[in-house]
Write a protein that binds this DNA or RNA. Structure first.
Lengths: 219, 219
DNA sequence: TCTGTTTCGTTGTAAAAACAACCGACTTGA
DNA sequence: TCAAGTCGGTTGTTTTTACAACGAAACAGA
């Protein structure tokens, strides 16, 4: 466990909690660790889960394949980020998405009930963790609304511009890298890959942007 | 305040908290009430807010108009539901949407900092409220993911079927009413109203569904 | 009752997206 | 180093959507 403290202290869930305290809390929260190979599923659609999870190593996609095989990528989880939190809370139904490792990954599981109900005052940082949890879920909520914003554009170009300009803003630079290859970006924005590729090249020819692989510059 | 207790006790935020205790908490949480006329804005895009709000009377839309005048409806808030919670938490940026009353409405405001940080043990139901808050935000989160699911369909028909079948499931009946008129539904699904109207009629002619105004039956 | 407004279906046209198929550049690994 | 697989761009065709415009029905208010 100890070797993951450095990662955990940078997460939203354990913000403003000291190293020693985090270590003490892991037991209190019933934390467990598991590794997954590239391509392995961490959760399946339809599952009921009671774990909040934090990614310690690797990379994970939250996605969904519909009846006709169209894949839609909801979110990409990077090291230190949380997932599953919305489906772990009491009263939530089954998972609506698959969660799959796209690199060899390590994941830490927390029983959500122990976060929400056990020893709210006995463990001195417990209430801070709950506070952090509220903020983290809120943030996830905002990023979902942002994604709805990209997807509500009627055209492929509109979706691309909405996403790319938001990404530039987030990274405080008109030059930035995106965490997707072309197929993944298309699945993320729910558009056809070739049509998207086409549109990107058109925009490049019009001088709106420059790109090379997954590195983009808005001009 | 007293007359709103009946509504508040049915909300997610005050679940499992008794009438008397709710009344006592309103002061502790610094609750205030304000009324809005139909068409009035409760919050504007770009605002910074620190209030969690509960709708006591009326009806509210969370929406956004883009540069070209395309309106996109994120969510419809009914009596007893909460809004603004994702943008009220510390560290969140400005509001990404407008919040507008589409009927004469009454809203209760709670200072989020007083929920999250004041008297976590002094007030005996405070921690229960925080627990409720986590669950409520999670639920909002899931409904956003569900909406992403509708919108990730490539076709208008796919979006309609995804939304309508989900609504049927939610209301436990193949006959149900939706809370939107045609234009609002189109804005909610980010499609053209006339194209959507067209598609609905085609589906009706194919025997997939029946509808009359905002009452639908899937067959 | 008259009038203006909202709502919803319908139509035709132009634009855009999906789809399928293919190619070349690169990477991987046996 | 050869073969297979991945990735991204390109092209042409078909389907779908957006857009604009109109009309009928229902409704609200003076």
């Amino acid at each position: 466990m100890k070797k993951y403290i450095e990662i955990l202290k940078k997460t939203k869930l354990f913000a403003r909690i000291g190293d020693g305290d985090i270590e003490a809390m892991l037991g209190c929260l019933g934390a467990t660790v598991r590794s997954f190979k590239k391509g392995e599923y961490i959760f399946h659609e339809g599952e009921k889960i009671q774990f909040i999870t934090v990614l310690l190593e690797g990379c994970i996609l939250v996605q969904r394949d519909d009846y006709w095989g169209n894949r839609s990528i909801i979110n990409r989880i990077c090291v230190g980020e949380m997932f599953g939190e919305a489906y772990a809370t009491p009263g939530s139904g089954e998972l609506l998405n698959d969660v799959v490792a796209i690199e060899d990954s390590t994941v830490m599981f927390f029983d959500v009930l122990r976060i929400l109900t056990v020893c709210p005052s006995a463990c001195r940082f417990h209430s801070m963790t709950v506070h952090n949890l509220v903020c983290a879920i809120s943030e996830k909520n905002r990023s979902l609304v942002a994604k709805l914003g990209y997807m509500s554009s009627r055209s492929t170009r509109g979706k691309l511009l909405a996403y790319l300009s938001d990404e530039a803003k987030k990274q405080h630079s008109s030059s930035f890298e995106i965490p997707f290859n072309r197929q993944q970006l298309a699945d993320f924005l729910s558009v056809d890959r070739s049509a998207m590729s086409n549109e990107l090249c058109k925009m490049r020819d019009e001088g709106i942007l420059i790109f090379e692989k997954n590195k983009f510059t808005l001009t």
